[in-house]
């Protein structure tokens, strides 16, 4: 790492992103963050993230969109809400995290190959098509897309699960899955209409 990497110029800031970010919660609440770090401190995953939620919020506030949206921080969040209940400024951190996940995908800046992002996509696809998940196929899809070799170690457990009847080979589906797919499409339409206004 050269010294160059640690220098940021004002031109590097994406002011539109920063404004979008601080507008996520009413009354400019995100500007009230005092950077106490209790969100990162209480986060069970912080030690494994590129940087914890505190630094993420700080970078976002300043407009460093690429760092924020391209981080693995977003994907490691398990929505345990420990940050949200600890925050002394009562900032809904988890909800902000969800918004950033969506923005990361929309903007194309997300770590597309991150297993969690891959899982989320596979999840939505399966639900859209059948209305329910079949865990085995979800995991199989994940393994195929992120590297089967990583999951070989879990083969034993997989077999166990099959044996005890906890994993099914039959796709579960709701009866009116067409209606569900249609529902999701209509919702999309409405969003486009609203955006067009």
């Amino acid at each position: 790492m050269t010294t160059e990497a640690m220098i940021r110029r004002e031109a590097d800031r994406d002011l539109e992103f920063a404004a979008w970010f601080t507008g996520l919660v009413g009354e400019e609440k995100l500007r009230e963050c005092i950077h106490c770090g209790v969100c990162s401190g209480s986060c069970p995953l912080a030690g494994h993230m590129d940087f914890g939620p505190r630094k993420l919020m700080y970078l976002a506030r300043e407009g460093f969109a690429d760092d924020v949206l391209g981080s693995n921080t977003l994907w490691l969040c398990t929505s345990c809400y420990a940050c949200t209940v600890s925050c002394p400024q009562q900032i809904p951190v988890t909800d902000v995290m969800y918004a950033l996940k969506r923005k990361a995908i929309e903007s194309g800046k997300a770590q597309k190959r991150h297993p969690v992002a891959v899982m989320a996509k596979g999840f939505t696809k399966m639900v859209r098509k059948r209305g329910r998940l079949t865990e085995g196929y979800l995991i199989a899809g994940l393994a195929l897309r992120t590297g089967v070799h990583k999951y070989l170690g879990m083969a034993g457990m997989g077999i166990n699960a099959l044996r005890t009847g906890r994993i099914s080979l039959r796709h579960d589906s709701i009866k009116r899955h067409d209606e569900l797919t249609h529902l999701l499409d209509v919702v999309d339409q409405h969003r486009e209409e609203v955006a067009a206004k």
Binding site: C36, V38, C39, G47, G52
Partner: peptide
Amino acid sequence: LQAEDTLAGMV
């Protein structure tokens, strides 16, 4: 005591 050492950037 668990906290983020914000100056060091680590938990």
